[in-house]
Structure formats: C-alpha cells, structure tokens
Write a protein that binds this DNA or RNA. Structure first.
Lengths: 225, 225
DNA sequence: TGTACATCAGTGAACGCGCGTTCACTGATGTAC
DNA sequence: TGTACATCAGTGAACGCGCGTTCACTGATGTAC
C-alpha cells in the first residue's frame, strides 16, 4: 500500500504528509464539504437562507454548482449539516470553558463571567441559528435537531447549576432545572435583542453583556440563599 | 363636498354610513388593503415571508395578483405595511391593559400578571415579528421601523416601572431604564423559546408563562427594596 | 330622473428572469499487474 | 518502474418551473348637467 511504501522511504513519506497537510490530499471531499459549510455560514448570515442561492455559496467557496450537488442532495440538506456542525462546535466549546468551574471559590459569579465570555453574542451564529429555528417551525426533521440541541444545553446547564450550588453550600429557592431554563431564556433574549433588535450601534457589545451580567446576578442573588 | 352634503341631508347621511359599514362602500380600497394584510399575516406565519408567493396571499384574501399590485408597489412594501399595522395594534392593546396600573395595591405583581395575560405568546405574531427582525437586518428602512417600535415599548415600560415603584414606595437597586430592558429581554427569550425552541407540546402554554412569572418575580424581588 | 362620461378597483394573461437541480463529461488521483 | 484501467472530485451547459411584476382591459361606481 501507499502508506507502508511511504514508511519505507523517508523522503517520499515526507512528501505524502505535505500533501495531506497542504491542499493536495488524496481524497479531499471532506475538505470540500467544510469549505462549502464555511461559505454557507457566511452567506446565510449576510443575506439569509432563502435569498442565498446555491451559486452564491459555491462562488464564495471557490466551486461551481456541480461540486455542491456532489456533496449535498439539496440546499435544505446543507442547512441541516451546517446546523449540526456548528452546534457540535458550540457544545465542545462550552464543555471546555465550563469544566472545573465547581472548584472556583465563587462558582456563581465565575460561571456568569465564563458564560458571558464564551457565548458573547456571535452575530453570525445568532443570525443563522434564529433563521434555522424559524425554518424548523416548518420542517419537522430540523425541529428534531433543534430540540435535541436545546435539550442538551439545558441538561448541561442544569448539571452545572446543581454541582456549583451544592459545592458552594447554597440553597436554591427554584429548582436547578427551572433556573437553567430561565437563564437560557434570558441569555437568548439579550443576545437576540442585541443582534436583531433595533440595537444602537454605539458600543452595544459592552452594553448588552453588562445588561446580562446585571440581570443574571439579580436572578441568582434572589434564587440562592 | 360630500361630507357637508351628508350633514345637510339626514336620510342620505344614513345611507352613506350604511354603505361605509356594510360591504358596499363607495370606495373600498382601504378594506381591500386590510384583507390583504390579514391574508399576508396568516400566510407569513404559516410558510414564511420568502416562501409565501404573492399569489398565495391573494388567493387566501380572495383576490387576484393584480389587486395586490394596485395596493402595494412590491412584496417588501407589504411586509412593511403589515409590521406597521400590527405594532400599532399591539401598542394600543398594551396601552389599554396597563393604564391605571399604579392604583393597584400591589402594582408589581399586578403588572406582571397583566403583561403575561396581554402578551401571552401569540404564535402568529412571534413568527412574523421574528422574521421581520431578521429581515430588518438586511433592509435599513425596516430596521428603522423596528427600532422605533422597540424604543416605544421600552419607553412605556420604563415609565410604568417608575410610576409603579414610586407609588408603592419601593427603591430600585437598578435604574428603571435598565430594569425595563431586562424584563423585555426576558420576555422575548421566554416567548421565542416557546414558539421557536424545541418546545415540547405538552401544555407548554402554562409552562412558559409560569416560567416567566417565576423569573419576573425573582428579578423584581431582588431589584426592589 | 335620465343620459353620457370619468374614475376606480380589480382581472387575468403574458413576460422574463433567476434559481434549484440534473447530467454528460474531464482531468487528476489511485490501483493492478 | 511502466502501462492500462477504474474511480473520484469537480466542471459547466442545459432544463424547466415558479415567481415577481407589468399591462391592456372590464364592469361597477360616482359625477355633471
């Protein structure tokens, strides 16, 4: 095989790995898919799913339409794949940011701060996610994917609230379950208002995250004792 | 002019007003516009703005496409007119529900209850409003209309918080201004999650409004003293 | 009141463009011997 | 190593449909005298 050959010939091996890192891999469909998804994410954020033509996406990715249809059956399928990729990324990011939070001296404040910095309103994703939610209203398979993701987030935040509050010896006047739901709703509301609301452009980043910090601290202060 | 003529001839006046109330008015463009807007609202909620063809809207309203174009220049103009009509309606409704609130014995709780019952998640409007917000992202005139409406809501809620808290002799640990923004964001988040989120169908009406009640009471409890 | 004309509200056929999707083809990459 | 063949990834022309928009026309309603 090519691989074992390569192992026996250091020089050729080197060339092969250059091929794999560089833009000339043996089989590059996976890479093409990634580039198309990247292009789709940007295009959908800029002009919306419906307004974005397959040609727009391909042009941005540096392909022709044929390439698109050799990777995806339809434009709708692409939307689903994009949502799947991005939500997986976001969950992994959250995982990474929040592990070990219960060892902080003040886990509540720490969690608020970390969540704010992790999920800082990412304009692109808010736009595409919102559109996907709207889309899911009329496409049951999309609704399933959306629900799964929402439930996963809720599960993780609930667990976080539970471990953090018990470690800190705090009593919750509202079940962790419900508290998590409230926090998620508040987050959504603030972030959506920032991106979609008639947001005044002047330093709205800080304004929105300040607002959310205030709100979360108010909430948590009166939910714990 | 026709009006002063009518005033001088009681009988004719009566006939004219029958014409205006009944479905045979002299000039019925206004009524046609209303019917088209009604049809558009339902159609947009069902299948979305982009997917809704002008023909779909007209068919639902009982017209042909020509009627549409003799009342609106483009499909986009219709969207703007629809948003204008609905926001005006909503503001009027809010006005009506919230006047006199400061005379309640417990204005905070009363306001929470009235807001919840007034702005109970109206699925149709949440869908259309969200889509309009997304649309406004790419259409500056729409963004202006959206901002105006958001600011108006914020102004009214701020005033309500101020008068209600001062009448009740409460001190706010957060400016009314900011508190109003937080409440609006929370409301948006809850309502959007209910309609767009992977909402479990089982009695989600009550669940969502219970959640919002809990959240608002928590917030207001720790924002006042 | 009756007649002639003007305007209004809405019809429905037609246009033309852009888009999603298909498909026959091509050059590059990999495999067999 | 070299040659012949197979598969893969992507090309780009073509198709056909549906949609937004236009426009010449019509019957109903209103106005003048």
């Amino acid at each position: 095989m090519g691989v074992s050959d390569a192992l026996m010939h250091p020089i050729q091996c080197c060339i092969v790995s250059v091929h794999e890192i560089d833009s000339r891999p043996k089989r590059r469909r996976a890479e093409t898919v990634e580039r198309l998804l990247d292009a789709a994410l940007e295009t959908f954020a800029e002009i919306g799913f419906a307004a974005a033509s397959v040609e727009d996406i391909c042009r941005r990715g540096g392909f022709t339409r044929g390439a698109f249809y050799s990777s995806f059956k339809t434009k709708d399928e692409l939307f689903g794949a994009l949502f799947a990729r991005e939500t997986e990324r976001n969950l992994a990011l959250a995982e990474q940011q929040l592990t070990g939070i219960e060892h902080e001296s003040d886990p509540v404040t720490a969690a608020v701060e970390r969540c704010l910095s992790t999920f800082r309103a990412d304009r692109t994703w808010v736009l595409v996610h919102t559109e996907y939610a709207l889309y899911a209203t009329r496409h049951p398979e999309a609704a399933t994917a959306l629900r799964r993701h929402a439930e996963e987030l809720h599960r993780r935040l609930t667990a976080l609230v539970e471990t953090a509050s018990s470690r800190a010896g705090l009593r919750l006047s509202v079940p962790a379950n419900r508290l998590a739901r409230i926090v998620l709703a508040l987050h959504d509301g603030v972030v959506i208002r920032e991106v979609l609301g008639g947001g005044t452009a002047r330093s709205s980043d800080r304004a929105a995250s300040d607002l959310e910090r205030t709100a979360l601290l108010l909430l948590l202060r009166s939910a714990t004792s």
